[in-house]
Amino acid sequence: MLPALMVHAEWALAALDGHGLDPTTMLDLHVLLYSYVQGIAVHLEREAQAEAATGLSEDQWMDHQTPALQAITAATQYPVFARVTGSLKNGYDLDLDTLFEFGLKPLLDGIAAIIENPPPRHTTL
Score class of each variant (00 low, 15 high):
L2H: 08
L5W: 09
A9C: 07
L13D: 08
L13A: 04
A14N: 14
A15S: 06
D17I: 02
D17C: 04
H19F: 08
H19W: 05
G20R: 06
L21N: 03
T24K: 15
M26T: 02
M26N: 02
L29M: 14
Y34T: 10
A41D: 13
H43Y: 13
E47Q: 12
A48T: 07
Q49E: 13
E51D: 04
A53V: 00
G55K: 07
G55F: 02
S57T: 15
S57A: 05
E58F: 09
M62K: 06
D63C: 03
H64V: 01
Q65K: 10
T66F: 01
T66A: 15
P67F: 02
P67V: 05
L69G: 11
I72R: 13
I72K: 12
A75P: 00
Q77A: 15
V80I: 14
V80D: 12
A82K: 10
R83T: 11
D95F: 05
L96D: 03
T98E: 10
L99G: 03
L99V: 11
F102V: 09
L108I: 14
L108F: 07
I114W: 01
E116V: 01
N117L: 03
P118A: 00
P119T: 04
R121V: 13
T123F: 02
L125S: 12
L125V: 13
